[in-house]
Simulated assay, not measured.
Amino acid sequence: MNNPSREEIKKILDTAKTIAVVGLSPNPNRTSYMVSEAMQKAGYRIIPVNPVADEVLGEKSYATLADIPHPVDIVNVFRRSEFLPELAKEFVGIDCPVFWTQLNVVDEDVFKELADAGYTVIMDRCIKVEHAILK
């Protein structure tokens, strides 16, 4: 598993505008909320993907990636690694170029499958940390 270089990640973050966050909790004490709030404050539109929340960070929440009615630039995953195969199948069904998983969320097979299919895959990296380092 080889993540893109820092230069490539910077390009992704510089051009992306909309981030769908799978597993975004409405609880302000959760990491997913804190990271997404920071990215929202940095100028990104955050689209929550959480079947039990109606709204997070002032944005309507969707039950699945397929339910989002507009394009997204990055899918950022805050779910445990065992959910990645299912999420990858869902991801392939939408028009999004980047599949990103947070720290300690890794599945080598999913990485290879998506990368081989032409997607940009970033695993085991915090998007907020990468943004802070690269801005």
Score class of each variant (00 low, 15 high):
D67E: 14
A88N: 01
F78Q: 00
F91H: 04
N29H: 10
W100Q: 00
P71S: 12
I74W: 03
I122C: 07
K135F: 10
P51C: 14
D107N: 15
G23Q: 01
V98Q: 01
A115G: 15
N29W: 07
I47E: 01
D95L: 11
Y119T: 14
P71F: 09
D109G: 05
A88S: 05
M39A: 08
E7W: 10
G43S: 14
I133E: 08
A132F: 08
S32P: 03
I122D: 02
K17H: 14
F91E: 03
S36Q: 07
A42S: 15
D109Q: 13
R30Q: 07
Y62R: 02
L87I: 15
R30C: 03
I127E: 02
V110T: 08
V121Q: 02
L103P: 00
M123Y: 00
R80L: 03
I9F: 07
A63V: 14
E55G: 07
F78A: 00
S25L: 05
H131W: 14
V52Y: 10
L13P: 01
P69N: 13
R80I: 00
A132P: 05
S61M: 07
T18P: 03
A117R: 12
M1E: 08
E59Q: 12
E130A: 08
T120L: 12
C96F: 05
Y119I: 08
V49P: 00
G93K: 13
M39Q: 09
Y62D: 04
Q102Y: 00
A42L: 12
P28T: 12
M34S: 13
M123R: 02
K11F: 03
D54H: 10
D124T: 11
T15I: 12
P4N: 08
K89C: 06
G58D: 14
R6N: 15
A115S: 15
I9L: 13
Y62M: 08
I122H: 01
A117T: 06
V56E: 04
T64L: 06
C126M: 12
M39K: 03
V21T: 04
S36Y: 04
P51T: 10
M1P: 08
N27E: 05
I94E: 05
E55N: 12
E7C: 05
R79F: 01
E113V: 06
S25D: 05
R125N: 13
A20S: 04
